[in-house]
Amino acid sequence: MKPPAMRSQGRGLQLYTLFYLLFLYAPIILLPLFAFNSGTVIAFPLQGFTTEWFAQMWGNATLRRALMNSLTIAVSASILATCLGIFAARASTRFEFPGRGGIMGFILLPMVLPEIIVAMSLLVVLLGTGVQLSILTVIVGHTLICMPYAIAVLSTAFSSLDRSLEEAAYDLGETKWGAFRLVTLPLVMPGIISSLLISFTISLDEFIIAFFLAGNEPTLPTYIFSQLRFPRAIPVIMALGTVLVILSIVLLALGEYFRRRGNARIGGSPTGGLM
């Protein structure tokens, strides 16, 4: 079909793209290599095969505490961000109101604000008002930065909703809440699940806010950061990283699956990314 010039150009680009993917994946490919490497120094050549680091990881009490904290934070923040996101997405896609653009821009601001500024300004206020730093303060911060991503995902789901379906429900005697619960909610459910998963993944990996707002409580990223300066601790961190990578990929694949199923349900095309 394509002219020969186009095909050769395509092949050059394809080669370039493959190299680029290699660059993107370089760290992820190395991770399991070092996680199963019996040498204690993270360098080539590799030594023998071992699962020792995974065993050590499992037996580490601080790490388990960090994991529990991270899970608590990620679950709470993703639920809160998604709930707030549902309000914003529904308001911005369904209703016309004064100042809509400005308000939405303001709510989406954390997406384009350097995280250090969000973290530092929150920290100054919390210290100033004497609030005890804990995982609760991290949840507050994470909800703020997850909300814009939740809104982005949910807006897609809400905007492709056919308004006549809701109106049909009203005509059939449903109340506003009933129509929302029985018609709208099931239709946007894939978007909600996708938003929960993405917020969860963002929160689980967030370092800056957790580092400054958690007080003495460790989370997974701050635990990893604290261990990076001890060479002896690195192999365990590599094992932990391998587990986290697999977890992220599973979560993202699930999120993508739900997003596409949602799209298919409302007759959309399967293309388009998570952003």
């Binding site: 993107l24 991770l31 993944t201 961190i237 986290l244 992220s248 990929i249 993202l252």
Partner: peptide, 10 residues
């Protein structure tokens, strides 16, 4: 997008 979602610190 996958590599972007894996632990930034690591």
């Amino acid at each position: 997008t996958i590599p972007f979602w894996t632990s930034y610190l690591i």
